[in-house]
Write a protein that binds this DNA or RNA. Structure first.
Length: 576
DNA sequence: GCCGTTTTCGGCCCGACTGTTTTCAGTCG
C-alpha cells in the first residue's frame, strides 16, 4: 500500500482515540493519541518521508514517545496498524457516531450499546421513540428527549462556520447587548477571538451588576432559537443558523482570568495550568491563586505575569511554540492590518472581476493602500475569458493611462498566470518579463499525484519572472481538500530561489494556513497577504488574511506587502 | 501513552450545568 499522507495518519490516530474513548480506556492514553494526531496533522513535512529517512526523527516531536513513534512509522509505511484493526473489530461500525450526538459522551454511548444493543444513530432513535432509553440507570425522560433532539442536530452535521461569518454575528450580538444597561465590560472569547479560520460557537463574557437583566436581554436577541441552559452565571442559546452562543457573567476582579480561560485554546490552557502547578499556584476562570489567596485575575496581563509570562496574543494560543518563545523573550510582534501597504492579487472586469481597474484602484486607495497589482487570469482559464499576450498588453496600456491620473497610488501591471497541467506556464517568458508582478497558480489538474503536481509547481518557481505562488494548496475550507502537493518541498524551493508564497485572504481559502505560514517564516520565505478580490467588497478580505498570518506568528517583516512598492521591487530584483 | 533538577512511577486542568440523584456522574468547554 502506498505511504499515507499526514492527514491520513492523523485520522487513523484520531480513530484509535475515538474507539479507546468509547471503550472507557484511560483518558490520558486517549489524550496521548489525540495529541499525536494533532502533531502529525500540523506538520508541513511529510511524516512518511521522515520515516523513510530515519524513524528516530519522530521521537523529538511533541507528545510522541517510543511507542507512538513506532506506531506512526508502521502506519506511514504500511498504511495500516494492527492495533487499529483490532480495535475496529471490537466495535460495530456506526457505533462511534453516537459520540457525535450532543449530550452523549463515551460513558452513556457505551451504556446504550451494552444495555440496549444500539449500534447506530437510527437504532438510537428507535430506542428513544420506544422509551427504552429512559429505563436505563442514569437516564431519564429528559435525557431521552434531549438525545432525540440531539439526533436531529447530529444528522445535520454540526458545521463550523467561517470566521468572517461568525464575525458578522458576533458584531450584531455586541450591538444588541450594548442596549442593555449595567454592563461594565463585554468581550467575545473562544476560537473567534483567536482568529481561527472556522468558529464552532461564540463565547461572550460580561461584567454586569444584574445577571438576570443581562440574560433576559441576551435571550431577546433576534437570532435566538432556543435557550439551551441558564444558570446563575452562565446561559447558552442556539441561534436559528445553528450556532451556539454562551454568555457568562463574571466578577470584575476575575474578568481577565475568565477572558484568558475562555479564549483557550484548551491545549494552551492545559500547558498554562501545568506551569501554575509547578509554581505551587492554581489557575481557574476566577484568577490565579496561591492557596486561598487570589494574586491575579482582573486583566489577562496580570494572569500571565503571575505565571512569569508576557501577555501572549490570542492568535498564538495553540500550545505550539508560544511558550518557548515567551520563555526566551522572542514572542513576535505580530503583523497588523495597518502595516499592509498594497494588495498583490486583484481581478478586474478584464476577466472575472465585477469592477473596472480604476474602480478597484480607487477603492483600494480609499482603504489606505498605496498600490495594487491587477492580476487577471491567463488564457487557459477560458471560462472567464483569460487574457492572451495581446489582450494583456492592451490591459497594461490602460493601466499606464490610469496611473497617470492617479495621485499617490500605483497600479502594478500584473498577471495570474496558470501553471499548465503538463507543466510550463500559460504565457511566454517575454510577456511575463514585461510585467511588474507575476503570480503563478493552479486551476487545472488539481487532482494530480503528489509527484506530478509538486514537480509542476517547483518548475514554475524556477521561472525567473514568477514572483509569487498563489493559493499554494488550493484548499477551500470545509469544501475542497488541498492538492496532494509537497508543501515542504515548495517552501524549500521558494527559500532557495527567493520566491514568495501567497496567503490568500479569501475567508474560504486562507491558504497558506497558519501552520504553513509558520513553516514559511522558519525557512525565510516572505509571505504575501493578498485578497484575490473579484469585487470592491472583496478587498475587505485583507483583514482575514492578516488574522491568519498572525496565527502563523508572522511579523511585519515576514509579510512582503508591508513594504512600499519600490522597496518590494528592489527585493524582487535582488532575489532573482 | 507521555513525561521528568522535586518524580523513571505517578501524575496528567478545572469548574458549571443538567438530570438523576439523596450526594453525584456525565458532559461540555
Amino acid at each position: 500500500m502506498a505511504a499515507l499522507t499526514n492527514a491520513e495518519i492523523a485520522a487513523a490516530l484520531e480513530e484509535i482515540a475515538d474507539i479507546l474513548d468509547f471503550q472507557g480506556a484511560n483518558p490520558f492514553r486517549v489524550r496521548a493519541y489525540r495529541n499525536a494526531a494533532r502533531t502529525v496533522g500540523e506538520m508541513t513535512e511529510s511524516v512518511a518521508d521522515l520515516v523513510e529517512k530515519d524513524q528516530g526523527n519522530l521521537l523529538g516531536l511533541p507528545g510522541i514517545g517510543k511507542d507512538l513513534a513506532e506506531k506512526i512509522a508502521t502506519l506511514a509505511r504500511s498504511g495500516s496498524l494492527p492495533l487499529l484493526e483490532e480495535l475496529r473489530s471490537q466495535v460495530p461500525e456506526g457505533v462511534l457516531d453516537l459520540l457525535k450526538v450532543p449530550g452523549l459522551g463515551p460513558k452513556r454511548a457505551a451504556t446504550l450499546y451494552r444495555e440496549l444493543g444500539v449500534t447506530d444513530l437510527e437504532e438510537l432513535r428507535q430506542a428513544c421513540l420506544e422509551h427504552r432509553v429512559r429505563q436505563l440507570k442514569g437516564f431519564g425522560e429528559k435525557t431521552e428527549a434531549a438525545i432525540l433532539e440531539g439526533l436531529d442536530l447530529a444528522t445535520q452535521a454540526t458545521q463550523r462556520m467561517y470566521w468572517a461569518v461568525a464575525d458578522q454575528i458576533a458584531q450584531s450580538i455586541l450591538q444588541h447587548m450594548e442596549a442593555c444597561k449595567g454592563i461594565r465590560s463585554m468581550q467575545f472569547a473562544g476560537s473567534y477571538r483567536r482568529g481561527k479560520e472556522t468558529v464552532g460557537d461564540l463565547d461572550l463574557l460580561v461584567v454586569a451588576d444584574d445577571a438576570t437583566r443581562v440574560m433576559d436581554h441576551f435571550g431577546r436577541f433576534s437570532g435566538v432559537e432556543k435557550v439551551l441552559a441558564r444558570g446563575d452565571t452562565k446561559m447558552s442559546v442556539r441561534l436559528q443558523i445553528g450556532l451556539q452562543v454562551d454568555l457568562r457573567n463574571v466578577p470584575e476582579e476575575s474578568f481577565g482570568a475568565a477572558l484568558q480561560y475562555f479564549t483557550g485554546s484548551k491545549e494552551h490552557n492545559i500547558v498554562l495550568r501545568g506551569r501554575a502547578k509547578e509554581r505551587g499556584l492554581k489557575v481557574n476562570e476566577y484568577g490565579v491563586f496561591a492557596g486561598e489567596k487570589r494574586i491575579a485575575g482582573r486583566t489577562e496581563e496580570e494572569v500571565y505575569a503571575a505565571l512569569g509570562l508576557p501577555w501572549i496574543p490570542p492568535e498564538l494560543r495553540e500550545a505550539r511554540e508560544e511558550f518557548a518563545w515567551a520563555d526566551s523573550g522572542i514572542l513576535p510582534t505580530l503583523v497588523e492590518l495597518s502595516d499592509i501597504r498594497g494588495d498583490l492579487h486583484v481581478h478586474s472586469t478584464w476577466t472575472d472581476g465585477t469592477a473596472s481597474i480604476e474602480e478597484m484602484a480607487r477603492a483600494a486607495k480609499a482603504r489606505g493602500l498605496s498600490y495594487i497589482a491587477i492580476t487577471d487570469h491567463s488564457k487557459r482559464v477560458s471560462m472567464v475569458g483569460g487574457l492572451d499576450a495581446d489582450r494583456l498588453r492592451q490591459q497594461w496600456q490602460e493601466i499606464d493611462q490610469i496611473n497617470r491620473r492617479l495621485k499617490g497610488f500605483r497600479i502594478l501591471k500584473g498577471v495570474e498566470v496558470d501553471i499548465l497541467e503538463e507543466g510550463g506556464l500559460d504565457l511566454p517568458d517575454e510577456v511575463l518579463a514585461e510585467a511588474d508582478w507575476v503570480v503563478a497558480s493552479i486551476h487545472y489538474g488539481q487532482n494530480q499525484s503528489r509527484e506530478k503536481i509538486t514537480r509542476r509547481v517547483l518548475e514554475a518557481l524556477e521561472n525567473p519572472y514568477v514572483s509569487c505562488f498563489a493559493h499554494p494548496t488550493g484548499r477551500l475550507i470545509g469544501k475542497r481538500k488541498p492538492y496532494q502537493i509537497d508543501l515542504d518541498a515548495v517552501i524549500r524551493k521558494a527559500a532557495e530561489l527567493g520566491k514568495m508564497l501567497e496567503l490568500n485572504a479569501h475567508p474560504q481559502r486562507l491558504d497558506l494556513d497558519d501552520v504553513a505560514c509558520a513553516a514559511a517564516k522558519k525557512h525565510g520565505v516572505l509571505v504575501v497577504i493578498a485578497t484575490d478580490a473579484h469585487s470592491i467588497d472583496g478587498l475587505e478580505a485583507l483583514r482575514f488574511g492578516v488574522l491568519q498570518a498572525r496565527r502563523g506568528g508572522l511579523s511585519k517583516a515576514d509579510v512582503a506587502n508591508t513594504r512600499s512598492w519600490p522597496e518590494l521591487k528592489q527585493l524582487l530584483n535582488r532575489r532573482s
